[in-house]
Computed example of a mutant assay.
Amino acid sequence: EALMNTYVELAAADVPTRQAAALTGVARATATRAASRARRPDPEPPSARPAPANKLSSVERSLVLSTLNSDEFVDKPPLQIYPILLERGEYVGSVSTMYRVLREHTQVRERRRLATHPPRKVPELIATAVGQVYTWDITKLAGPVKGTYYDAYVMIDIFSRYIVGAIVHACEDGLLAKEMMTDAFGIHGTPEVVHSDGGPSMTSKTVRTLLADLGVTASRSRPHVSNDNPYSEALFKTMKYLPVFPDRFVSL
């Protein structure tokens, strides 16, 4: 502001504006705008807005809110409530009024009763030796013709990344998964934990009963999170990206 005052004093003393700007470092455009603002009259204070003649009373607003929060309409939006009331010959307010009342009470949100799911815990498995934690998954293999696929059941040890069980079938089934696990456990021993995703075979009663009978802890991936089962997913990608991996298999 001091520089601006100096600029004004120089300009009043008939110093050219270009020279005054060079001496004070104030741009001439800035000084021109400041002088223009100073010449403007002071703005009038804002006047109080009169209340609309059709403004709802506190009783009427309470009626709107109680109607919206009634057992019948608590899970319906105003766009549905308004025509239902009109069909009965009732009118408590317009749609915009209903939204305005809801907004005043911070109730403008999803009004339907939606299912809530608790957050899933991130699986954290640690293996310090062979045979402690196994992970398994099922991947599709292209069959001899388009639309035909085989299912490869593969179980690995996450410590050594050794494939302890692998079998291919024409379909996915919990009984076939149990057969693969039984063979793998018989050869390499029963682990402490078996990890898998949430597929139908993994969560089948047959597999859950087998693991419970053997005292094995069943670990599950979170829904739609492939990173929770990285060893199996990485193995499948490595396998399918090998140059020798065939485009199709002619038979089981």
Rank of each mutant, 00 (worst) to 15 (best):
L214A: 01
P52F: 04
K121V: 11
T139M: 08
M155E: 08
Y153F: 11
A142M: 04
S70N: 08
V154L: 14
V108T: 09
Y91V: 00
V122W: 05
A13D: 12
S58L: 11
T139N: 05
E90A: 13
E172D: 05
V108H: 02
E233P: 07
A212L: 08
E110Q: 14
Y149A: 03
P46R: 07
R61Q: 15
P43Q: 01
V216D: 00
R49Q: 13
G215Q: 01
D75G: 05
R40T: 14
M98Y: 09
E90R: 11
V250T: 14
Y91W: 11
G165V: 10
E172W: 05
D157A: 03
L235H: 11
S58W: 03
A170F: 08
P46V: 09
F159T: 15
P43K: 00
E90G: 06
P119N: 07
V122D: 12
V8A: 14
A35N: 14
E110L: 13
Q107L: 13
P41W: 01
A115S: 07
L125V: 15
E192R: 12
E192L: 08
D228M: 05
P230C: 05
A48D: 14
G165N: 11
F245A: 00
H188M: 02
P118I: 07
A184R: 02
S66N: 10
P191C: 05
Y150T: 03
A177H: 00
L3C: 04
D157I: 04
P230I: 00
A177V: 03
A11S: 11
T97C: 03
C171I: 09
A22P: 01
V145T: 06
A48I: 15
H188G: 04
E1Q: 10
S96Y: 07
A234R: 15
L86Y: 03
L85N: 06
V8I: 10
D75I: 00
L10V: 05
G143N: 02
P119Y: 03
Y7M: 10
I163G: 05
P230W: 02
P77T: 14
Y153D: 10
L65K: 13
V133P: 04
R40G: 15
P123L: 03
P41I: 01
A11N: 03
G25E: 06
L79D: 07
G93V: 00
A35F: 08
E233V: 07
T116L: 12
R112W: 03
T190C: 08
H224D: 10
F73E: 06
W136E: 01
A31W: 01
V194W: 00
L210V: 04
A12M: 09
M202S: 12
K121L: 14
A142T: 09
F236L: 06
I187V: 15
V168T: 15
K55C: 06
